[in-house]
């Protein structure tokens, strides 16, 4: 099983860098991170040696960038027909799903790692809490994993990449907004605290913000882990039921 996952992983990673897509994605990700940090997050105006301005916009950054990355995962395979070829190999859908997901996750991790000059910059300006920054990077990686799992599953539903993008962005938005004030306000007026808490507890925002404070709670890890597991399982089920259609 591991051998097959590794094979798919290599094929995917090679695929990213065979075309300019990887470079374009990385450049856009890094450039937009900078825009959000310096212009939207008012990094210099806050005068605080932390990377709050950088990380606080990650959910919104991923909302559009990750679906752009995942839209081709399965939709492209379907469109070009390579999915049939893939499944003629002695390969189970779960192995293909995991291989593709891990490759995409590693690629996102690379993008995230390339933001290290921001960490150096903030360390040169003051005395940041490095533990908080490390936790925030870990949280951001979990968040990206969540978006990727959703995007991967929804990409398997269609052969049209645009539809895959829109679906992934919409579902991702739902997972962000369930912890946002405007949605919770809607419930908080009449629903008991337990219900409001439960709705908020299924939000990317709630768990991501909790980790970016510098504390990695097992409940947060379980949330992201189970979320990824569920969507990847759904991905396998979709592939099983639709095959190469």
């Amino acid at each position: 099983m591991l051998r097959n996952i590794r094979m798919i992983f290599r094929r995917e990673m090679g695929g990213y860098f065979a075309t300019p897509i990887a470079y374009v994605f990385l450049v856009i990700f890094l450039f937009l991170s900078g825009i959000f940090t310096f212009y939207v997050g008012n990094f210099f105006e806050r005068e605080q040696a932390d990377l709050y301005a950088f990380f606080s916009h990650h959910p919104w950054l991923y909302l559009f960038l990750i679906p752009a990355l995942t839209m081709r995962l399965w939709a492209e395979e379907r469109k070009t027909g390579s999915i049939e070829l893939l499944f003629t190999l002695p390969l189970r859908p779960v192995e293909a799903v995991l291989g593709k997901f891990l490759a995409a996750w590693c690629f996102t991790a690379l993008a995230l790692a390339l933001t290290f000059p921001l960490w150096l910059m903030v360390a040169s300006l003051g005395q940041p809490d490095h533990g908080v920054i490390l936790a925030s990077y870990i949280g951001s990686l979990f968040l990206a994993g969540g978006f990727l799992a959703i995007g991967s599953c929804l990409s398997a539903l269609t052969r049209n990449q645009v539809i895959a993008f829109v679906l992934a962005a919409t579902v991702g938005l739902g997972f962000i907004l369930s912890g946002h004030a405007m949605v919770l306000d809607f419930f908080s007026g009449w629903a008991p605290t337990l219900v409001v808490d439960t709705i908020a507890s299924f939000s990317f925002l709630t768990h991501f913000e909790a980790i970016t404070k510098g504390v990695i709670d097992l409940a947060d890890v379980i949330y992201f882990g189970s979320l990824m597991a569920f969507w990847l399982f759904a991905n396998v089920v979709v592939l099983d039921s639709r095959g190469g259609d």
Partner: peptide, 30 residues
Amino acid sequence: LLLLVAAGLFLVVNIAANSVLTGARLDLTE
């Protein structure tokens, strides 16, 4: 049905984790 069960499991696991695992954490703050 399988997907529904998986979704239900996802909900139950998280509700349980939120109410039971309130102390298991790694504090990375300085």
